[in-house]
């Protein structure tokens, strides 16, 4: 990891969905993080934590109506949030690319794979005809798709799930982006295919020097892949740390709870699981206190008095008034 200037600097990002005749919903609330060149950053959270909305906001892919986006997203010297649409289109796909969860719904089902891959090259690199086709073939073989010439003529439904995700990654990498955002890229895939895709992403990041933002609910995926991890809950980052520090010693009760609730393949059998009580929908509004307080085993009185601040403690950021201590962490294992 280098100490150079951040490539992406998200400052105080907030996204509010407004509804006619209903209360507005703040899906992302004051999220800040940076991504340095070559760094792999993980955004971890359950459904409703705001991790996907964060990535859509960075990519400028949220609908214009009914959404209020605040804060800054600095990429190079540009603020992506205020950039005109056509400038954003130039950056998107060329400098920043995204891979989505479900490869079937992000590919056009009635257009052959080849056209969808070459489209990116034509739009951003002015490649045409045979040159574009050759480049597309090269891309597909780079992501490990056998017989790329034949695959280019096929439609998405003719490819398996893992193959489709490879094709999407090929499209995302077409212009050698400097930042790749992957939103649950392996969730829809089987474990052996997931392992292939994660290895592929690792290799590509190493080879091209691109930065990667990995959005996932799977702590195992993060453990093997990310340099820095941000844990999100109900729209805010609750804990950020290097992956080794985070897994060795989770301080936020939510992070600790997540780790204690997943069965581990290498744990002794019969080791009890400690689920987090309640569900991710039992949240307190951040304005009234800590959103996790209703489910938190470490809750103390001040937790529900007001929003706890995000504080830096020994190289990590933590949003908690009564964090886990070392002994408690050991007890949950």
């Amino acid at each position: 990891m280098t100490n150079s200037e951040p490539l992406l600097d998200v400052r105080d990002l907030s996204v509010t969905f407004t509804r006619k005749g209903g209360p507005s919903v703040r899906a992302v609330d004051g999220v800040s993080f940076t991504v340095r060149p070559g760094e792999t950053v993980g955004l971890v959270g359950e459904s409703g934590s705001g991790k996907s909305v964060t990535s859509l906001a960075v990519m400028g892919l949220l609908p214009r109506r009914g959404v209020q986006v605040g804060g800054q997203v600095a990429f190079d010297d540009d603020d992506l949030l205020t950039l005109p649409r056509d400038r954003m289109r130039d950056i998107r796909g060329r400098d920043i690319a995204m891979v989505f969860q479900d490869p079937m719904s992000s590919l056009n089902p009635v257009v052959p794979i080849g056209i969808q891959v070459t489209e990116v090259l034509e739009r951003h690199q002015d490649l045409k005809g045979d040159t574009a086709r050759a480049a597309a073939e090269d891309l597909l073989s780079r992501v490990g798709i056998p017989d790329p010439a034949r695959r280019l003529k096929e439609y998405p439904h003719q490819l398996s799930g893992g193959m489709r995700q490879r094709a999407l990654i090929a499209m995302a990498l077409a212009c050698r982006p400097r930042l790749l955002i992957a939103d649950e890229p392996t969730t829809a895939l089987d474990v052996t295919i997931q392992a292939q895709i994660i290895e592929l992403l690792k290799e590509l990041v190493q080879d091209t020097g691109a930065s990667l933002v990995m959005i996932t609910h799977d702590l195992g995926v993060v453990a093997g892949l990310c340099d820095t991890v941000h844990v999100m809950y109900s729209g805010r980052i609750v804990e950020s740390a290097g992956r080794r520090e985070l897994f060795a010693q989770p301080r936020h009760p939510y992070t600790g709870g997540l780790l204690a609730s997943v069965p581990r393949l290498d744990a002794p059998r019969g080791a009890p699981l400690h689920p987090i009580p309640g569900s991710p929908t039992d949240v307190l509004r951040w304005s009234r206190g800590c959103a996790f307080a209703p489910r938190c085993p470490n809750r103390i009185e001040p937790c529900t008095d007001g929003p706890p601040p995000l504080e830096s403690i020994g190289g990590r950021s933590l949003r908690c008034l009564n964090p886990l201590t070392e002994t408690e962490e050991v007890a949950t294992r």
Partner: peptide
Amino acid sequence: AVPIPDPAVEDARQRIL
């Protein structure tokens, strides 16, 4: 292929892909 939520284990594992 099953990821384990522990960087120490993840880094030291041999994988069969």
